[in-house]
Computed example of a mutant assay.
Amino acid sequence: MAITISLADLSVLLVEPSHMQAGLVTKMLRNQGVRHIQVLDTAGDALAAMTNARLDGLVVISSLYLPDMAGTELVTAMRDDEALEAVPFILISSETRPQVLEPVRQSGACSIVTKPFTEQQLSRALFAAADYLNPPADVDLAEVEGMRVLIVDDSLASRHHLRRLLEELGIEKITEAIDGKQAVSLLEQTMFDLVITDYNMPEMDGRELTEYIRTQSWQAEVPVLMVTSEQNMGRLAAVERAGVSAICDKPFEAGSIRRLISEALTR
Rank of each mutant, 00 (worst) to 15 (best):
A2N: 13
T4A: 11
T4K: 09
A8Q: 15
S11F: 06
L13T: 07
V15I: 14
V15P: 13
V15C: 12
E16I: 03
P17Q: 12
P17N: 14
G23I: 08
V25F: 01
V25K: 01
T26E: 15
M28P: 01
R30M: 10
R30G: 06
N31S: 14
Q32V: 10
Q32F: 09
G33S: 08
V34D: 00
R35W: 06
V39A: 10
V39K: 02
V39C: 14
A43C: 12
A46H: 13
A49N: 11
T51G: 07
N52S: 10
R54P: 13
G57A: 02
L58Q: 13
I61W: 05
I61C: 04
S62R: 06
S63T: 13
L64C: 13
Y65I: 06
L66C: 05
M69F: 06
A70C: 09
G71T: 04
V75F: 04
M78N: 03
M78E: 00
R79K: 15
R79N: 02
D80S: 11
D80N: 11
V87F: 03
P88V: 07
F89E: 00
F89Q: 05
S93D: 08
T96A: 14
T96K: 13
R97V: 11
Q99Y: 07
E102S: 14
R105H: 12
R105M: 07
G108V: 08
A109Q: 04
C110T: 12
T114R: 14
T114C: 11
K115E: 13
K115G: 02
F117R: 15
T118M: 08
Q120D: 10
L122Q: 08
R124Q: 12
L126I: 07
F127G: 02
A128S: 14
A129P: 14
A130T: 00
D131A: 13
D131K: 12
D131P: 12
Y132C: 08
N134V: 03
A137S: 12
D138Q: 10
D140S: 14
M147N: 10
V149Y: 04
L150A: 06
L150N: 03
V152W: 00
A157V: 03
S158W: 01
R163V: 00
R163S: 12
L166P: 01
E167L: 09
E172I: 04
E172G: 05
K173I: 06
I174D: 08
E176M: 08
I178E: 15
D179S: 09
K181T: 12
Q182D: 08
L187I: 14
F192G: 04
D193Q: 03
L194W: 04
M204G: 08
E208C: 01
T210M: 10
Y212F: 15
Y212W: 14
I213C: 00
R214Q: 11
R214E: 05
S217R: 09
A220N: 08
E221M: 10
P223C: 04
P223W: 00
V227A: 09
V227M: 06
T228G: 04
N232D: 15
M233F: 07
R235C: 05
R235N: 05
R235S: 06
A237P: 01
A237W: 03
A237Y: 07
V239G: 09
E240L: 10
S245D: 04
S245Q: 06
I247M: 15
I247W: 12
D249V: 03
K250E: 00
K250I: 01
P251C: 00
F252D: 01
S256A: 12
I257Y: 01
R259S: 07
L260N: 00
E263C: 04
L265F: 06
R267K: 09
